[in-house]
């Protein structure tokens, strides 16, 4: 049987988007009052929940504390019902551990940890429904949660997964695209300065294509940053209305 045509001659993708278009974002900041910060984010059908605790004193072994900055602790997990086939082990597997580590590295680059020496910040992210770009959606959700917690960051961390089809870079891949034999790349960017917080790529890609793909990823991340910024501003407007009342 013929595989899926990821990009039609008319320039439309499987779900009807054009190459550079992102999926539809829906976000809510602060859905959990008990936590210091929280956010819920939908990017198309990928849905993630992020919760932040801290900064607070080191828990457990104090020896891990750093004298000049805060330690960031991340945990990534997936709900058992998040994928089409029920997941046997929601967290603690190799993939989740790796993802947790990537998130930690990403936020260590963005959060101004030097403001909180000897303390700890916990970021928990859970994928509720998975439809491609899990890492990116987690980063974006966590960014909103960190902002909700009032922890200063150098800039929004914006992430996006991009892939390459027929010489054309596609932004914000969905699962059908990710699994359709596309070499994909995930980028987490601090958009204002253009600094890269994390760049991840497992597939093989010819060096000639790297530049084009990176450019597409940067543009997509900047697009994400606009959306996140709008979400934060909207949230602030609502919050200030509430306090005024």
């Amino acid at each position: 049987m013929a595989g899926l045509e990821l990009l039609s001659d008319q320039g439309y993708r499987l779900d009807g988007r054009k190459a550079t278009e992102l999926r539809k974002f829906q976000a809510r900041m602060g859905p959990f009052a008990q936590a210091d910060g929280s956010a819920y984010l939908e990017q198309g059908n990928t849905k993630a929940l992020a919760v932040v605790y801290g900064p607070h004193e080191m828990r457990g072994s104090r020896s891990r504390a750093l004298h000049d900055r805060a330690v960031i602790n991340c945990q990534y997990s997936m709900a058992t019902f998040s994928t089409a086939e029920r997941k046997r082990r929601p967290h603690g597997d190799r993939k989740s551990t790796e993802m947790s580590l990537h998130l930690k590295q990403t936020f260590e680059a963005a959060v101004m940890t030097q403001l909180y020496p000897r303390s700890q910040i916990d970021i928990y992210v859970k994928i509720l429904q998975s439809d491609g770009g899990n890492y990116s959606v987690c980063v974006n959700a966590a960014t909103l949660a960190v902002i909700d917690a009032g922890i200063p960051m150098r800039d929004y961390v914006c992430a996006c997964t991009v892939g390459f089809v027929d010489e054309t870079p596609l932004a914000d891949l969905c699962y059908a695209e990710e699994s359709g034999g596309v070499s994909s790349l995930a980028l987490a960017l601090l958009p204002r300065g253009g600094q890269i917080a994390l760049l991840q790529m497992d597939a093989r890609l010819h060096q000639d294509h790297l530049e084009t793909l990176m450019e597409a990823a940067m543009t997509a991340c900047k697009g994400v940053s606009k959306v996140l910024d709008e979400v934060v501003r909207q949230h602030l407007r609502e919050a200030s209305m509430l306090t005024r009342e």
Binding site: D15, G44, A84, E85, C174, A176
Partner: peptide, 13 residues
């Protein structure tokens, strides 16, 4: 051999 439910987005323009 099992059955799985696939949910795909479909954008209208």
């Amino acid at each position: 051999g099992g059955v799985m439910k696939v949910v795909r987005e479909h954008y209208l323009r």
